[in-house]
Design a protein around this nucleic acid. Structure first.
Lengths: 270, 270
DNA sequence: TTGCTCCTCACGTCACGTGAGGTGGC
DNA sequence: TTGCTCCTCACGTCACGTGAGGTGGC
């Protein structure tokens, strides 16, 4: 027989836990001394304790462990318990995995925004953009309605997106209520077709780009800079132009519009 | 402004939860009526509530959420919180995934034991066994010492095992204290070499097999049946013979020795 | 006296949920 | 009176951990 301290070292269960299990009737010491109340455990207790420890590692609650111990003494009898617990574990893996992926997406986005912030000169520059697979929804209306379009695309292709959402501008001039634009998001592969969503390859090429920092209302001034540059170099552009939302209202916070980052891209006719 | 009931429907938080958050100072209604104590919420509350709901989905504690809300208002500021939480989530995924795998292994083993139990006639029969990759530890001593060997193999190849543990008997006769045997386990692939462990392919072939049900002490009687069969058919066997532990003491319970299942296999010279 | 092992009992943790008992206006 | 929405307050959940105050034998 062992004192509670010895038994604690044997089983790896704390003294508090052993007293708690005694209280709950889960693991009753083979002998309790009258007067002192000292608990003494024997070999039978220690076998039961090992089973309890094992069952705990499988995530069973003490209530379930009690049921199992009361009714069964081999693995065959608790197959249904094990199967249920297996499903519980798979559910948790899926849940936390999904949470991890969502966190990763936000972290990745923030890091890239930070990198771009530091690297950018915030001047008009020329660069090359690659072609990419996209999913987009063409709309006519106010620019502020584009949120609905992005919502739709993301609901349909949320799992396959692989970059920042952007807008394609088909109107040559500014239109208040009937602008012609397309809410797009880059996707990994053209897995499927969805009603009302255009899935296709967007061509790459040489482009003029400007990183705009600040609220969307101030975009006009950045467009002015780009147009001045284009005219100065006598470059002809390809419709539609692109507006890439590198950093805007976040998944969590609305954020500070002064810190929003938007890239304006005009592809150039060669 | 909204009453608590309306605000509950807006935010998806229960009335109890809203009262709790008020108590904790996490989400204080914009106005509380004197006398009645009625809580009234406004648009600012609802924005904050949405942030809280989002942060909850990432698994942050209310304490962390309070910290975040007190100190930051955009995603960039909480990058370290997000990264820490990301690691927490990956840790949980790994933990629960591991638990799921351990459960699956037990479930699989039990199912197969059950299947074998139902299918078997418990008579000596001839069949074909396939070759397989194994890891084994050769030992000399008492059969009851084989547990140490299995422990060692499993510690080394635990992740790569793909079947039930078995013993190879090299002694032609029964030896009490100096039996010559090898504790083996089938493995998926010969990934690595470990000191003292033999990793190799075990040949297949025609064999005589008997499923033994009951404690290991009674194995002798089943061996007797097999030897009788072999003599009756005048078959010559190949050393070592095999003893496969289909069902023995489990991962959780010691189980009932009367339900143990052990398969005896003698490969035959053709 | 100090140190050690044991004891009981009350309270804390975490994020709420349950339920009793009451109010105020339709 | 009934029904509805709101309120407070106490207690429960889950699996223990913390800590105070005390005992008994070396």
């Amino acid at each position: 027989v062992y004192s509670i301290g010895e038994f604690s070292r044997i089983t790896g269960l704390s003294i508090k836990t052993l007293r708690f299990y005694h209280d709950k009737g889960l693991l009753v010491p083979s002998y309790v001394e009258r007067g002192s109340g000292y608990r003494y455990y024997d070999a039978g207790n220690s076998e039961k304790a090992l089973v309890i420890v094992q069952l705990r590692t499988f995530g069973f609650s003490l209530q379930q462990i009690r049921e199992i111990l009361d009714q069964h003494d081999d693995e065959a009898g608790i197959l249904d318990y094990l199967e249920r617990q297996h499903r519980v574990m798979l559910g948790r893996v899926a849940e936390f995995g999904e949470t991890a992926r969502r966190l990763e997406a936000i972290i990745h986005k923030e890091r890239e925004a930070r990198r771009l912030m530091q690297e950018s000169t915030f001047e008009v520059e020329e660069k090359h953009v690659n072609k990419m697979q996209i999913a987009g929804i063409r709309m006519t209306g106010r620019y502020s309605d584009c949120g609905a379009g992005f919502g739709k695309v993301c609901r349909a292709f949320g799992r396959w997106t692989c970059g920042k959402p952007f807008l394609l501008h088909y109107s040559q001039e500014y239109r208040e209520t009937d602008a012609d634009f397309e809410a797009c998001v880059p996707i990994r592969k053209a897995h499927k077709q969805v009603e009302g969503v255009s899935v296709r390859e967007l061509p790459g090429g040489r482009c003029v780009s400007l990183l705009h920092k600040g609220p969307y209302e101030d975009l006009g001034r950045s467009y002015e800079k780009v147009f001045a540059y284009l005219q100065g170099k006598d470059l002809r552009t390809i419709v539609p132009s692109r507006e890439i939302y590198i950093k805007g209202p976040g998944m969590i916070f609305r954020g500070n519009p002064k810190k929003y980052l938007t890239e304006i891209q005009f592809l150039i006719e060669e």
